[in-house]
Design a protein around this nucleic acid. Structure first.
Lengths: 112, 112
DNA sequence: GATATTACTTTCCCTTTGGATAGCGCTATC
DNA sequence: GATAGCGCTATCCAAAGGGAAAGTAATATC
C-alpha cells in the first residue's frame, strides 16, 4: 500500500480532493463531459434528477477549479458549450476506481 | 481507458459509490481507521472539525454499509472500538487515487 | 461528595440546500 | 402574433444539515 493509513499529510490531500469534488453531482457531470462536449440542456438530461439551478451552480464551481471549460457562441438561441479540461481528465483514474468500487458495492450491499 | 466516458451503466455505478461515500467526512474517517482500530474520541481528534453529533451519524452510516465494524466492551466508562472491514479496505485504491489527485490539484489550483 | 471519564443523544437554532416556478432576450417557425 | 427554443437568473419557501452546549450512565479517584 502506497497510501499510508492515517498519515496526516495524506489525509490533507484527500481532503483537498474531496473539497473540489463535494456533492453528488460534480463527478457525474465530469463523467458525462468526458465522453464529449455538451451543452447545458444536454447535461441536464444526462444527469438525472439535477435541477437547472443546481447544474448552473455546479458548472461554475467546476469551472472555477479549472476542471471544465465554458465556450459561448454568439448565436440565437444562445449556444454554450462545456468541455472537460486536461485537469478534469486527470480525474479519470479516480472515476475508474469509483466505478469499480461502485460495482462491487452494489453486488455486496445494495443488490442482494 | 477502461471506463467508457458517458456510458449510463458506468455512471450508475459511480452514483452508487458516491451515495455510500457522500459528504466530506466518510472517507476521512475510513482513512483514519485504515491505520488502526480506534475509539470514538480518538477519531474525533483525528478528523479535525467534526462534531460529536456528525461523527455519530457518519459512523452509523458507515456501519450500515458494512464499511466499518463496531465492537462494544462492557466496561466503565464505556469502550467502543471501531475497525475497518474488508469491504472498507476495498476502498484503498479509491483513496489512493484521491490522494494523488489531491496533491496534483493543490499544486495546480490551490497552492499557486 | 464533587469530579472526571466515555460514547454518545438531545435540544435549540441558524444556515445552507434544493425544489418549483417564472422570466428574459432574440430569432424562427407556424 | 403566439409559441418554442436556449441558457441561464431570480424569487419564494420548505426541508435538511450542522454547530454549540448540556445531559446521561456507572464507576473510580481525590
Amino acid at each position: 500500500m502506497l497510501t499510508k493509513g492515517g498519515c496526516p499529510k495524506t489525509a490533507l490531500s484527500i481532503k483537498d480532493a474531496l473539497e473540489a469534488l463535494e456533492g453528488r453531482w460534480k463527478l457525474l457531470i465530469l463523467f458525462s463531459l468526458s465522453a464529449e462536449n455538451k451543452r447545458f440542456k444536454q447535461i441536464s438530461k444526462e444527469v438525472p434528477g439535477i435541477t437547472d439551478k443546481t447544474l448552473s451552480k455546479e458548472l461554475k464551481s467546476l469551472e472555477a477549479n479549472k476542471l471544465i471549460k465554458r465556450d459561448v457562441y454568439n448565436t440565437f438561441p444562445p449556444t454554450v458549450e462545456y468541455s472537460i479540461t486536461s485537469h478534469g481528465k486527470s480525474l479519470e483514474k479516480v472515476m475508474e476506481e469509483l466505478h469499480y468500487w461502485g460495482l462491487l458495492h452494489r453486488k455486496k450491499i445494495i443488490g442482494k
